[in-house]
């Protein structure tokens, strides 16, 4: 087909519309980035200042030091990576078991999935008492395990259909050739599901990095993730908008970077094997 003028005009219009949508959606994020580099006198101005008179990185120094942003960053990293790794191991096992062997039938599948939809407030009190009973309040262990519980159902759900769709004959022929079930699972099935595994790993990381409610309830001073620091700064009489924006930026950038790095897995991994 030879592109006509009308067709290329439509294509241009489409690109322009897409660009406009992206710009509108990114405005709040851009505003945060701009605030983060504004000097103190320009945070609150009427009319607002759209671009700082000079770029001031002091907000980041203050955020990382005085407001505990560095500890927040380290703790968030530890919690999110720990939870992601554990969730992946546990979740991939379970998803393979469900997808390949129909373990426990539909009842088990649905029970696991329903945990995904459990409102956090519904389980907050008993979980608080649970971790307290083990002396694990304000510990990395509790937060990592808690997040794993929320990540696994999602991982199972997405990966299960992937494993179902992988042709079992390859694993079966490996078994015939003397491989163990374990090796057939690890060496054949897992690599085939890689795009989906990367996608769910990314989403698990994002969830664990961002989680707020349980972090507020289960932690205090020893473990302080970034999302919890933010609201504590938005109070009092002298709200340091620039430093808060800096902490918010520090909290947002890693997940944004990671998402872009793993972008190509997202679309492939999240088609849920629903359409083929």
């Amino acid at each position: 087909m030879i592109p006509t003028f009308g067709a290329s005009f439509r294509r241009g219009l489409r690109a322009f519309a897409a660009f406009l949508v992206l710009f509108v959606f990114l405005c709040p994020v851009l505003w945060m980035l701009i605030t983060a580099i504004k000097p103190p006198g320009e945070w609150l101005n009427s009319p607002p200042i759209f671009w700082p008179s000079n770029i001031d990185l002091g907000n980041f120094t203050e955020a990382l030091g005085r407001w505990g942003g560095f500890k927040g960053l380290v703790d968030s990293l530890a919690v999110a990576s720990g939870a992601t790794l554990l969730s992946l191991v546990v979740g991939v096992f379970a998803a393979y078991s469900l997808g390949r062997f129909r373990t426990g039938g539909e009842t088990l599948s649905f029970s696991i999935l329903s945990v995904l939809f459990m409102p956090p407030v519904a389980v907050a009190v008993p979980m608080y008492l649970f971790w307290r009973a083990f002396g694990l309040l304000d510990s990395f262990t509790a937060l990592i395990l808690q997040y794993t519980v929320f990540n696994v159902p999602f991982i199972c759900w997405v990966l299960k259909s992937f494993f179902e769709d992988i042709d079992p004959t390859m694993e079966e022929s490996a078994l015939v050739n003397g491989a163990t079930r374990w090796r057939a699972f690890v060496d054949i099935a897992v690599p085939l599901a890689r795009p989906a595994i990367v996608a769910v790993a990314l989403l698990s990381f994002i969830f664990s990095w961002n989680e707020f409610f349980f972090a507020v309830i289960l932690t205090r001073a020893r473990v302080t993730t970034l999302p919890v620091i933010l609201p504590t700064l938005m109070e009092g009489h002298d709200i340091r908008w620039g430093s808060i924006a800096a902490i918010a930026t520090i909290a947002a950038l890693p997940v944004i970077a990671l998402t872009f790095a793993l972008q190509r897995y997202l679309v492939r991994g999240l088609s849920f094997g629903a359409i083929r």
């Binding site: 709040p28 994020v29 945060m32 990095w209 961002n210 707020f212 970034l226 999302p227 919890v228 933010l230 609201p231 938005m234 808060i244 924006a245 918010a248 909290a251 947002a252 997940v255 944004i256």
Partner: peptide, 8 residues
């Protein structure tokens, strides 16, 4: 991005 960042 984190909901608390969104809130801010």
């Amino acid at each position: 991005i984190a909901p608390s960042v969104v809130g801010f």
